[in-house]
């Protein structure tokens, strides 16, 4: 009997994928299912009462939730605006034929290292770089340009600047690597033909590099969408906790953390989570459809 199972080509694949199926069921489907249920309940001291869509209604009228959603979307859009073009241009420079390979290797390593830091360490360092005192690094930079000192983390837009600087520092190198890998797959004949026609390097970049990198760009944008909407820890570390002046650093996940973990209001927090999940899944399925995963994938 056991022998039959061990040699069965029909059963084997199911046994191979079983750990994934169990993980999916126990740690994804069941919790998320309960999350939907809890979002229709008032959960207090372990007592759950069904209250229909009241949590969603409260959420709809909750100005702090809208602020958090606005902050998350703003951060997501701005990280995409920064973290696609800048790494793309850097990748093009590294990938050009001129220059020393050793220097480029050093450059790539220097850009990549920030991604190895934990959000805790990165947050601590950036909090200290963007400190309020006149002698803190960013205020020295501000002074050099003739303004400041700035109380970076007290004001909305300057706090956002610090957050974006942190994101740019940590992820520009990784995105650059994606683009370099994509560029190396573009046949060099394309560029040679364009050069023969007298196209400048800039026009080659716009008309050959960018269109041919479209799949990579779409991928990087997609992970930036998820990462941006789910951002929480960067803000949590930068503001040394989940509270920032006027909630300027509060994100949707931060609000979910506040309601669910800090205030133990599980029903309401679940509703926040469900709304966020619906947004992310809508984007996710759109992406999978657009990239043809459902059609082409011969799995």
């Amino acid at each position: 009997m056991l022998k039959q199972i061990l040699y069965s080509k029909r059963l084997a694949p199911y046994i191979f994928i079983l750990p994934f199926l169990i993980t999916l069921a126990v740690f994804w489907v069941v919790p998320l299912g309960r999350s939907f249920v809890m979002s229709t309940q008032e959960v207090l001291y372990g007592q759950a009462t069904f209250i229909g869509l009241d949590n969603y209604e409260r959420l709809w009228r909750d100005s702090i939730f809208w602020k958090a959603l606005y902050n998350s979307i703003r951060y997501m859009v701005l990280t995409i605006v920064l973290l696609v073009p800048i790494p793309l241009v850097l990748a093009a420079i590294v990938n050009s034929r001129i220059g020393s390979p050793r220097l480029k290797g050093f450059f790539k390593a220097s850009m990549f290292v920030p991604a190895l830091t934990s959000v805790v360490v990165a947050g601590i360092v950036f909090r200290l770089i963007f400190a309020e005192s006149g002698s803190a690094m960013m205020n020295q930079v501000a002074d050099f340009f003739g303004f400041g000192p700035v109380r970076w983390l007290r004001e909305d837009l300057t706090g956002l600047t610090a957050l974006l600087a942190l994101a740019l520092w940590r992820w520009a190198g990784v995105n650059m690597m994606y683009f370099i890998a994509g560029m190396q797959a573009i046949p060099s004949e394309y560029y040679e033909a364009a050069a023969m026609d007298g196209a400048s390097k800039f026009r080659q970049f716009i008309h050959i590099t960018v269109p041919n990198l479209k799949p990579t760009i779409v991928y990087v944008v997609t992970i930036s969408v998820y990462g941006g909407l789910a951002m929480f820890l960067e803000s949590f570390m930068l503001y040394a906790g989940n509270n920032s002046p006027n909630n300027q650093g509060l994100t949707v996940v931060g609000y979910l953390y506040r309601k669910g973990i800090e205030e133990n209001n599980l029903g309401f927090a679940s509703a926040v989570g469900v709304v966020l999940l619906v947004i992310v899944m809508a984007i996710n399925i759109t992406y999978l459809l657009a990239s043809g995963t459902f059609k082409k994938e011969e799995v």
Binding site: S35, A230, V253, L256, I261, L266, S270, G273, L277, V280
Partner: peptide, 8 residues
Amino acid sequence: PFEMLMLP
């Protein structure tokens, strides 16, 4: 993202 799953 794991953040979506953390509470449940």
